[in-house]
Design a protein around this nucleic acid. Sequence first.
DNA 1: GAGTTTGAAACT
DNA 2: CAGTTTCAAACTC
Length: 804
Amino acid sequence: MDVVSPELNSLLPDEIMDTEAVEDIPQSQPDGSAVQSVPSDDAPVPMETDTPVASEHLSLCSNAPSAEHTKALATVAALGIGSGSQLPASISSTLPSLLTFKPATAASMATTKTTDSLSGTSFSTGGLQRLTAPFTISAANHQIILNKVASSQATEAAKSAGISPQIIKQEGQKLLVTTIGKSGQPIVLQLPHTGGKPGLSQTFGENKSQAQQYKVVTIGGRSELKPIVGGAGNQLTTLQAQQLKTVQIATKTPVSSAAPIKFIITKTVNSKGLCPQTSVSPVIAGRVLTQAPSRTITLSEPHNSNLQSISGKKIAISPLKTPSKVTVVSVASPTSNASHKSLTLPVSVALGQQILTVQQSASPVKLTTSHPTTQNIKPMQSVTMGGVGGSQFKTIIPLASQPNVQQIQVPGSRFHYVRLVTATTASSSGHLSVPSTSSIQTAKPMVVSTGAVRMSVPIVPAQTIKQMVPKPLTSAPMMTTTQTQQRLIMPATPLPQIQPNFTNLPPGTVLTPAPGGGNVGYAVVPAQYVTQLQQTPFVTLASSSGFPASTGIQTQARLPINGLSPAETTSRPRKPCNCTKSQCLKLYCDCFANGEFCNNCNCNNCFNNLEHETERLKAIKTCLDRNPEAFKPKIGKGKEGESDRRHSKGCNCKRSGCLKNYCECYEAKAAKIMCSSICKCIGCKNFEESPERKTLMHLADAAEVRVLQQTAAKTKLSSQISDLLMRTTPVISSGGGRLPYTFVTKEVLEATCECLMEQAKKAEQAHQPQVEAERMILEEFGHCLMRIISSAGKAKADCASINC
DNA sequence: GAGTTTGAAACT
DNA sequence: CAGTTTCAAACTC
């Protein structure tokens, strides 16, 4: 994985080509539906031709993950989708931080139009205009080169929409699209416009004058995908949730320096290539669509007049074992806004079957989403949003077989944001060619964020998730298009009861009518919960009676997904809580603190569920009132010269020496970061030069090494045993004779031991020295072996003669 | 598994 | 903001 410095990026043309990431990617197979297990040339698998096992080795060889396969796999994971010849338009999106729920977002739900050419892509920009931006897809190198948006067309489209045209600045956005996967699976990146006409929507957002710069990280396609959506041949693919992993690193969190400075030797760890002076992070955003080779990629690039400026920044990518090469290019932005000093840089990188999303996030980044209803666009998207400060390991959960959920990832947030999208009912291409004007009217956006708000923009498919259908509000929270029948969970108008919480809405993110919500019309639902709803067929959503299934929902929420559900397992195997007195509505409860419903927990009198959404909301509000940062990640980036990660508040340990899990800094979930100057701990030993810490780390490393070695040994042993069995069994069954070692039966062993013991006795009786005794025993052992081998050979010969 | 220790969260 | 209490996780036996 390479990191391209901002300096280099500044030299790159607008059409950035990432050749490195794709140089070793084979051409896509025409039939991408099947798993292309291409044996790697550089990794030949030895074949044993003398045994029938050979064929099996062949099979194994064919199944061995090649680099390309791995990349494709990872790509799929990253996209949460799959593509193939019959999977024309999978969608996954990593809409990082650009996806800011600005007021403009309210009008940014775009209908994306696709064509059937590799160039001339139709843009639906922020629902305000549809731009046709020329871009080319290089099938040879698996790259998509995006040209600047045709401003004239954009203007026209905007005018036709009755909206003031907004032209994307040339320098404001740079897009790099690279496929890791096969060339036949181009990627479409959608650059949402976070800007918008101020008067068109509510003004929740800020930083309107900021420009954004988009960088797109290579995302490949994969052929090993299961179709999910049958409409118009579009098929989503299931992703192996367990293999998804998103990592956010180098998050910068404002840290108070008011605490007394402790003279703790803390070694600065800044190996992530972050430029200290760089206070503005590039934002990578994009909706990635994988499509069939011959299909046109539709780029929906929401127009953003408020693009946040992003200065060049190196993207630090976790050095995970990555079989695939991924190049991350950061683009320096000439239009960077100096005032905007935060940086969010989420990158989804495909690593084998893992998705590594590297995010650098700092300050809140507005997010605008557009909602493409293109035929070729899969309704399921994984969205990564850069945003609120704080680093957090996040996982993009593939919503297996659920095409109508878009996942949004918000850097800095530990919560999953899920957008529910309508299952495309009218999936024919003709219907999907919705004029921009129409798209603006129909695909109405939702403004869900204010300031540092991180909020998903859930669109609920009417037919699929009845429970999620919001109660109609006066200001038309429900938007129905003739094509998709989208319904918005979030009302366009603020909900007095909960709207203030949006800015720090912790737990979950999908607002859904609360069954027991009383006057609170919406419930904050953990994204994984929604995912669970989606994934559980037994949740009958066909009912049109509103929310009869509240009990059912809760039942589902109680299902043992903790560590069992693929998505859940992938994202975060959380331990069940054991709360007894807090009702799981205080931050004592890890589930609550992490914005999750209790699920399969051992808690008593739990209110952290949908049935008690009113209380839950109230508790959330209380927590936020007490501490607006309550639900934000605690691990953020330290100040310059300090460690990349540190606890936002610092610990207060007194007796543990900060070397036990009591310490939030040291605690495992805090990745064992060191204490920093803001900690108030006493007797801290959790600093770089601490011998105790080193010892612990060494022990931990040693333990890890031992585990790895044991695992490897076991694997090897198992392999050898199975190999022996494979070798032996056929021989025996064939009657051709038994290999010598097969004659070492228990009886033979006992006899051998007796012989050795006898020899030892002889030596002892003869008063031979120990050395001589050992020699005699070994000699006898050699004789025993010879006899065994001889017997085996004789038996084999006899058997062979009999067979003859 | 029960009891103890610990430190964050909550409370005053 | 500081001191105290509550709480649940971490830890020990």
